[in-house]
Design a protein around this nucleic acid. Structure first.
Lengths: 260, 260
DNA sequence: AAATTCGGTTCCGAATAATGGAACTTTTTA
DNA sequence: TAAAAAGTTCCATTATTCGGAACCGAATTT
């Protein structure tokens, strides 16, 4: 008892990071009062906390005094991305998969009930190649997310998704956990997941789970517009996607195992 | 006196962020003892600090207990990058400049004595398009850096660069602040900066300063291999680079000014 | 096999930093 | 010009961090 759901506050840092999330992940600069309304801190406390985040360059203020994400975040992330071992191991396989299918290939890892995209390979390098990298999407309505979830057993799954809100993005989005669990069961049996316009209208994908032996849950997917990426195509690609996932897992294993 | 150089510690957050820098910006996973040697914290303290960073997903541990950057950094950074107003305003101009010159175009902002790259446009999308974004380089030996520095007066400049170590990357790298200041004077008079293999052998560039009216110092540059990007080419491109910088500043101004 | 070192973790009184209510200043609105 | 709202500073109280020392387990040495 006592612990309401999953609200561990890691002391000072936890509070500051929650505040950083609030401001940095918002989609526009926020004024002090906006933040005050959303955080439940007293004025004095909030003011000092924001000052500290600005002092550390995790937030910045524009000339109107509004708060927005600081450049230090970008710096920290770039190194971590560039040297991410999982991403490096997976990359060549993503390229192969892209070549085989001609469509966009994603690599995403599960974090809580969300998927965070670690890499993306597109055929024709379109306008903003990296637009997706680092983005978070709900696990329950994305191919990569459902694939990753399928590697958990029902108990873990329910724990992880407790409190999840099933937002109806499209008419095909899962409405509740029962519906999702049914889907997951099929995915487990079959070895790959489909996303048929569940997150975004007109976008379909096929994905396979990756579970690294350090406990990381992730997935690879091939994604494209529904008019081009038909059910038949997705079926046809499923073995390729599963193959890519298998290769990535094997490379991870042989790369990390021996060094032990 | 008292304040040794510029070592403000923002209480708890400052210490934790210094530690995060140490671990996340390292180029390999670090064991507890490695970190202990580099940070000057007592064992107990360090252990708790690392635990907090891991708890908050700013760091992770691999199966050997070594510490490495966490995925939350990537998530925070992606939103901040995607919504960065300066970058959005600059982007079309970077593309134009890329088209005009055929070489790689960079956008970087000054942070302390370093430049952090905010965007990059390449002609032929080479292997890792985004490899550079978020990376930091010393200001004194990069085109973008020197251009940005040239917008400061000598006093600010000396303050900012006090304590700077002039690492000799190549035989052309500035060795001391006097040499740099001479160069900066020329840059100020001329309106653009050259980097003739000062940071990396075989790489040259021409850059122009950008100063937003919110005090941000930044720069645009066109960069390429010395064998292709000759002095004549750089001379020829200088007006184009200055033009791009001017357009970016104007767009920033007209975008932000009216809203005031 | 026993002893020792090494790498990492836990504990708890003392030291330090964060908290938050209230007073104060500046800016905006009426 | 007054009044309200927004933002900032102060400081006694409270909570958190600090850090030395003890502890644990695994690997290494004797």
């Amino acid at each position: 008892m006592g612990e309401t759901s999953r609200s561990r506050e890691t002391g000072t840092l936890g509070k500051l990071m929650a505040l950083l999330d609030l401001v940095a992940l918002a989609d526009r600069p926020m004024r002090f009062t906006d933040i005050l309304a959303l955080s439940d801190q007293p004025r004095g406390t909030l003011h000092r906390q924001l000052s500290h985040l600005v002092e550390e360059d995790l937030l910045e203020t524009d000339r109107e005094g509004r708060y927005l994400p600081g450049i230090r975040l970008l710096h920290l992330a770039s190194r971590s991305w560039a040297r991410n071992e999982f991403r490096m191991v997976a990359e060549p396989h993503l390229r192969v998969l892209q070549g085989q299918t001609g469509e966009t290939v994603h690599l995403g890892v599960l974090r809580g009930d969300e998927v965070i995209y670690l890499d993306k390979v597109e055929g024709r390098q379109s306008v903003r190649m990296y637009s997706q990298i680092g983005n978070a999407s709900p696990a329950y309505c994305t191919g990569v997310g459902k694939a990753a979830l399928s590697a958990l057993d029902d108990l873990d799954l329910k724990t992880r998704l407790s409190g999840m809100v099933f937002h109806p993005y499209t008419e095909y989005t899962h409405r509740d956990i029962e519906s999702l669990l049914e889907d997951i069961n099929v995915i487990r049996a079959r070895g790959h997941a489909f996303d048929l316009e569940e997150h975004e209208s007109g976008i379909c994908c096929v994905a396979a789970p990756i579970h690294s032996d350090d406990g990381t849950l992730a997935g690879v997917s091939v994604t494209g517009p529904a008019y081009r990426v038909t059910s038949e195509k997705l079926q046809e690609w499923a073995p390729l996607v599963r193959g890519a996932a298998a290769s990535i897992m094997q490379d991870m294993h042989s790369r990390l195992g021996p060094r032990r």
